[in-house]
């Protein structure tokens, strides 16, 4: 492990310690500290919601609903170290609830009718199709990674998985996507 890795590891530990302190503050009635936690997790929670809802606006709505449910149930959180994964699970439930209610006719089994239209729309649609064929957990992982270039540390924090496990699953998922793209005429994508 080189110096930078050690520093990153230390920084991660410090971050987790800070998070625990933030949670203590929230539990003592400091709601402003909850805002800091929301800031910290907003992107990852929105990404998880997006992997289910496939709509950016709905994903943000789901993230905000997730935070409200989390705040209401914070006292039930058994381990503060697992706040991220706990939040992620609430988010999955929120997103699934939204799907059940068929908000705006979302169908999560089909792939992503996003608003990103441009020259590469065909490519985008193909990639979205490929992602849509992944299992929910694989899809979640891929979206988390590429939603806004999330680091393995951040993913580890919200998923509660080791970085090694995340890396292995990402490799596997990417291979599946590449294979799908290749089968659909993207010859330059090689396995």
């Amino acid at each position: 492990m080189d110096a930078d890795q050690r520093v990153r590891k230390l920084a991660y530990r410090v971050t987790k310690a800070l998070e625990t302190e933030l949670l203590d503050l929230v539990l003592s009635g400091d709601i402003g500290s909850f805002g800091k936690l929301c800031d910290r997790y907003y992107n990852s929670i929105a990404a998880i919601a997006y992997s289910v809802l496939t709509d950016h606006h709905l994903a943000e709505d789901a993230a905000q609903e997730t935070f409200l449910r989390a705040l209401k149930n914070l006292k039930k959180l058994k381990s503060k170290e697992k706040f991220g994964p706990w939040l992620a699970q609430i988010c999955r439930n929120v997103a699934k609830d939204m799907v059940k209610k068929k908000l705006r006719g979302i169908d999560t089994e089909n792939v992503l009718p996003l608003a990103d239209v441009g020259n590469n729309e065909q490519e985008n649609q193909a990639v979205k199709q490929a992602i849509g064929r992944l299992s929910l957990s694989e899809r979640e992982l891929i979206v988390l990674r590429y939603y806004n270039n999330m680091s393995h540390e951040q993913m580890s924090s919200v998923l509660g998985l080791s970085k090694g496990a995340i890396n292995n699953r990402l490799v596997r998922s990417r291979k599946k996507i590449a294979k799908h793209l290749k089968n659909n005429g993207f010859a330059e994508i090689e396995l």
Binding site: C38, L112, V127, K128, I131, Y146, N148, R174
Partner: peptide, 28 residues
């Protein structure tokens, strides 16, 4: 290949960094 695949996926599902509007959320 990995890089280009990553770019493709980012383009398809990626977003700009989101900012949580805590004050608005709090007021709602």
């Amino acid at each position: 290949n990995k890089k280009s695949l990553g770019e493709l996926i980012s383009r398809a599902v990626g977003r700009e960094n989101l900012k949580f509007d805590f004050d608005k959320w709090k007021s709602i």
